[in-house]
Simulated assay, not measured.
Amino acid sequence: MKKGFTIWLTGYSGSGKTTISEQLYQSLTAREIRCEKLDGDIIRQHLSKGLSFSREDRCENILRIGFIAEMLSRHGVGVIVSAISPYREARNTVRNKIANFIEVHVSCPIEECARRDVKGLYQRAMSGEITNFTGISDPYEAPLDAEITCDTARESIDESTDKILRALCRMGII
């Protein structure tokens, strides 16, 4: 059986997590590596419906995603998680439960994320219409020891994806 793993992409809304995860998924499946994507927005619509954006509920959401990722990776599946995951403590709790956990900080200045925002969420958050918005009215605790950092203000999606793939090869994950 192949070794499972979890790639956990964390960063601000609009930083490029979902786009990178899509391309990473395509690259891994092209190599015939079994993998699944767990996107924070989609998980919130289904598994975590009803949770608020309070610190407690955000942490609960991350723990739920982590539970699924751990189960899948334990059974030899590569898991790609793209979720803001704003709190270091919740990410570290998940990290400690999953073998072959690779944290990817998708770094991008909040101004650039707001510029990219097609849904208008940042504007609504800055006007006070949306509360508890990560980076505006709620904190984002950047990783202190991420295995990989992708600077999407300076790197293309291709460059970020290639960086992750090269690191996975170096680590013996793929």
Rank of each mutant, 00 (worst) to 15 (best):
N92S: 12
V118E: 15
S21W: 01
T149C: 07
V94C: 13
S73H: 04
I84M: 12
R58E: 05
I130L: 15
G50I: 01
V106A: 04
T152P: 01
G135S: 06
K17E: 05
E22A: 14
R116F: 07
F101Q: 02
T18Y: 08
P86V: 07
I157S: 09
I110N: 03
S13E: 03
K119I: 12
K49E: 01
E22S: 11
F133V: 09
E89W: 05
K2L: 11
R88Q: 15
I84Q: 07
A99P: 05
C169W: 03
W8H: 11
M126N: 08
S52V: 08
R58S: 06
K37A: 08
S160W: 00
N100I: 05
R88V: 06
W8E: 08
V106Y: 02
L144K: 13
D117P: 05
L38N: 09
D158M: 09
D145R: 11
M1L: 09
R88E: 12
I174M: 05
V81R: 02
E103A: 03
G135I: 03
D145H: 13
H46V: 06
S127Y: 01
L38D: 03
G66Y: 02
L121F: 12
S107R: 14
I84L: 15
G66D: 05
R170A: 11
G4H: 12
T134N: 05
I102Y: 09
G78L: 09
E70T: 11
Y87W: 10
I80K: 06
K49S: 14
G172R: 08
S82E: 08
S85W: 04
L72F: 15
L168S: 08
I110S: 02
G135L: 07
G11K: 12
E36M: 10
K49F: 04
Y122E: 15
I173T: 13
I164C: 10
G120K: 11
E70V: 03
A69M: 11
D162M: 13
Q123C: 03
I164F: 01
V81T: 10
E36F: 15
H75E: 10
E56I: 11
I174G: 03
A90R: 04
L24E: 00
E56Q: 14
D138N: 05
V94S: 03
T93N: 04
S137R: 06
R88W: 13
Q26H: 11
C108P: 14
I43H: 00
H46L: 03
F67M: 10
A83E: 08
A114N: 03
I98L: 07
S54L: 08
K49L: 10
